[in-house]
């Protein structure tokens, strides 16, 4: 008898679940999470609607849920620290998510930081690759060998004679994905080492060495920053906002001649940077009326502008022209086209 009551209760709840809701649901990147939840809180406090729910699932996980279909049980927005892939868009379309708008909000730089008491460090992406890859080209450049480098000056005599120790994010992190893509696959997939690595059967090579030189340091960037305070030889890899917050203790290495400053990250001169975005499911606009309010509040100079409140949280604002264009396309619900995803 109790079981029948329970199944009846379940059925009753079922009918509740399919109604329209006034609360926005978001998933996606942990990098965008602090910005999205700040805007969500602001909307809840001043917009007269329930505070949107922001879940941090990682970019890939968010895309999967976002593209799972249309309906009140799927998220309305997914945050991303990279562009949507064409395969993900195809998945979306196959599941009926046909009307998507992309909103570019700003940039995040991946910083190689060190204890401030050290002399400034000038690195190139090639040197970073040689320091972290498990297999590197041999000195004559003809074969691939296990990484022999233990100190920075073995890679380049002009670099300091310091042991290579790198505290970096673990495999589950989006920061790690971006780092591998921009410093390692940059050479092994597009650059001058492509032939060598593909010839050895190593496609999309981005394996980080496991001989103790690279130390996985957890998702918590705070921890990496703390470790740099104790270990003066070490280099840490983390998001730009942590450099800004700890500028009195930590300095960022220049990469390919560009220092990790907001201006150089925004202009793309600093090479290890990525764009932050969110994707809006326009199919839900009718049933979730707060969606437009959220987009209008987020895509506004007060939030993402040069003096916007998200800058205090570490967002690197877009250049003025790009920003205006992005705000316009997001607030006018410009549909995302497959072709535009091909562009960088």
């Amino acid at each position: 008898m109790k079981k029948t009551t329970i199944s009846l209760a379940l059925l009753a709840v079922l009918s509740v679940a399919s109604e329209a809701r006034d609360q926005i649901k978001m998933v996606g990147s942990s990098t965008v999470y602090p910005f999205a939840s700040a805007v969500a809180e602001q909307l809840g406090a001043t917009g007269g609607v329930p505070t949107p729910v922001v879940e941090s699932t990682g970019t890939g996980g968010g895309m999967k849920m976002f593209c799972a279909g249309v309906g009140m049980n799927t998220p309305d927005i997914t945050n991303a620290s990279r562009r949507m892939k064409s395969s993900e868009l195809a998945q979306c379309r196959a599941n009926g998510v046909t009307d998507i708008t992309e909103a570019l909000i700003g940039y995040d730089g991946i910083v190689l930081g060190q204890n401030k008491s050290n002399a400034p460090l000038k690195l190139t992406r090639k040197e970073i690759f040689l320091a972290v890859a498990e297999k590197v080209p041999s000195a004559d450049g003809k074969s691939i060998i296990n990484n022999p480098y233990k100190t920075w000056n073995q890679i380049n005599p002009s670099l300091p004679n310091r042991a290579i120790t790198i505290y970096g994010p673990p495999k589950s992190s989006g920061t790690r994905d971006s780092f591998e893509e921009m410093t390692m696959q940059h050479f092994t997939e597009e650059g001058d080492l492509k032939g060598l690595y593909h010839g050895a059967g190593l496609k999309k090579y981005s394996k980080i060495r496991t001989d103790g030189v690279w130390v996985d340091s957890g998702e918590n960037d705070n921890l990496i920053v703390q470790k740099l305070g104790k270990n003066k030889n070490a280099i840490g890899i983390f998001g730009y906002s942590f450099l800004e917050e700890n500028g009195n203790k930590i300095s960022g290495a220049t990469v390919d001649g560009a220092a990790p400053t907001p201006a150089l990250i925004a202009s793309g001169k600093y090479p290890i940077s990525r764009s932050l975005r969110f994707y809006i499911k326009n199919n839900h606009r009718g049933e979730v009326p707060a969606l437009d309010k959220y987009v209008a509040m987020f895509m506004n100079d007060k939030m993402i502008g040069e003096r916007g409140s998200l800058k205090r949280l570490g967002l690197i604002p877009l250049a003025k022209g790009t920003r205006a264009a992005s705000i316009k396309s997001a607030t006018s619900h410009a549909p995302l086209k497959a072709l535009s995803l091909m562009q960088k």
Binding site: V13, V16, Q23, K25, S37, G44, V53, V54, E55, S56
Partner: peptide
Amino acid sequence: VGMIAFIPDIPTSFTQA
């Protein structure tokens, strides 16, 4: 099941986030 998220509102029903 999505309960680890930014949910500042005090829930008033079992179906709310």
